[in-house]
Design a protein around this nucleic acid. Structure first.
Length: 168
DNA sequence: AGCAAGATCGGT
DNA sequence: CCGATCTTGCTG
């Protein structure tokens, strides 16, 4: 049987948590119906010094959720039409988040949020206590691959070279 | 108050 | 390659 992942799972450095998310199950409850998805690709964004991270602009209304304790959700709208689903990592006060980039049957962060029906109303919600979305243990994964993060050419040489995208 | 850009996607 | 579409942070 599977149980919900709790604070001790999320309260780790984003670079440790990100690869560990691969193979985990996202449980989404919509109108009493429960759906399961497996995480297959993620990207880590780490602290105010990471110029690819939205928190590099500092603590603003938009980035506030990233400063919460690990296990919260950071949502944001991109290009005026796609919601990005991010899981906050680490301890309170240190901005770290992981973009969920692909699921087993759904590729692309915008498409998966549409499939899971995730939007602004999930901003700041806790995966530890929410009744409509949480994580459980899934399958053991081996042979985790990594590469550069996508779509962050603006971040400058040292940050765009970081291999902080993990996938299977 | 106005503006440019964006952790994307789908169609040419 | 390009347009859609709108929030955000920066500038003045």
């Amino acid at each position: 049987m599977s149980v919900r992942l709790l604070h001790n799972f999320y309260n780790r450095d984003v670079l440790e948590l990100a690869p560990d998310l691969l193979g985990k199950k996202i449980i989404r409850s919509i109108n009493g119906e429960v759906f399961e998805y497996f995480i297959t690709e993620v990207e880590a964004y780490r602290g105010e010094e990471d110029r690819a991270c939205h928190a590099s602009k500092g603590r603003t209304k938009r980035t506030e959720a990233m400063y919460l304790e690990g296990g919260h959700i950071y949502m944001y709208l991109i290009y005026g039409m796609y919601w990005m689903f991010n899981i906050v990592a680490g301890t309170e006060g240190i901005p770290q988040a992981i973009l969920i980039r692909s699921l087993k049957d759904f590729r692309g962060p915008g498409r998966l949020s549409r499939e899971l029906r995730l939007d602004k109303s999930f901003y700041g919600e806790s995966l530890v206590t929410s009744k409509r979305i949480w994580l459980e243990n899934g399958i053991e994964v081996c042979d985790i691959k990594k590469g550069r993060r996508i779509g962050i050419d603006y971040a400058g040489e040292i940050w765009k070279k970081k291999e902080w995208r993990f996938f299977i």
